[in-house]
Design a protein around this nucleic acid. Structure first.
Lengths: 119, 119
DNA sequence: CTGGATCCCGAATGATACTG
DNA sequence: CAGTATCATTCGGGATCCAG
């Protein structure tokens, strides 16, 4: 994922950093606290390990998440949001979540909302 | 621009709606009020009429912007943010703008910020 | 003629599947 | 978990078309 070199406004930079199909969900899931790779893979429906790793790596490069490796056996790595950077995007994502919910309500997509207990 | 059919959370929907290289800037520029196509083209550095039109169309389809056509001479169409939908994303974009500014500060990219009076 | 909008096409980028 | 191949989508250019 490349950042554009020329831009009109810093907003575009952030947009580039959050670009990609899975980045928002990963961050969103991470708002619940530190987790392992395997757990993320289970929680995020449809994602492959490869995509997860790839996007986590980019998010880490931009300073939104960080990882922690426990040197024991078995080797275990946990991912978590950084502060303040990572927690800061959450605010933006929260608004997007609300917009998404409203959009679904207005388009007769209430079923999926109910199923997830978001209504 | 297609919305994915299956998703884990409404957030992903919004992310899809804002996807695309120019959408955030267009919305950001529109926060200043109603403008014409030609003016947007002038204000947004590097965008072509085609890209502008394409993205405006999608933003309109998702209900973030709307347009108004004055049938006079010369033919003139104006675009503006809808309420509350369009104005609502601004809140999210504002946060992203701040994150972008901070990111630039921490990476020695203060020059471009100064040039734009953002510092 | 002028500004707005669409169409077609190649190049670049992203996503997924498959493999070791 | 990394590498490669393939498929889908996006970007950007330019030509073209439509309406007053």
């Amino acid at each position: 994922m490349k950042l554009r070199e020329t831009f009109t406004c810093p907003l575009e930079l952030t947009h580039d950093m959050l670009k990609g199909k899975w980045k928002p969900i990963i961050l969103w899931r991470l708002r619940l606290g530190k987790t392992t790779l395997a757990q993320l893979e289970r929680d995020i429906d449809g994602i492959t390990q490869k995509m997860l790793l790839e996007h986590l790596k980019e998010l880490a490069a931009f300073g939104f998440v960080d990882k922690e490796v426990s040197g024991g056996y078995p080797l275990k790595t946990s991912y978590f949001l950084t502060r303040p950077q990572g927690e800061r995007v959450l605010a933006a994502l929260t608004i997007m979540q609300e917009i998404g919910i409203d959009y679904m309500k207005e388009h007769g997509m209430e079923e999926p909302l109910r199923e997830r207990g978001l209504l």
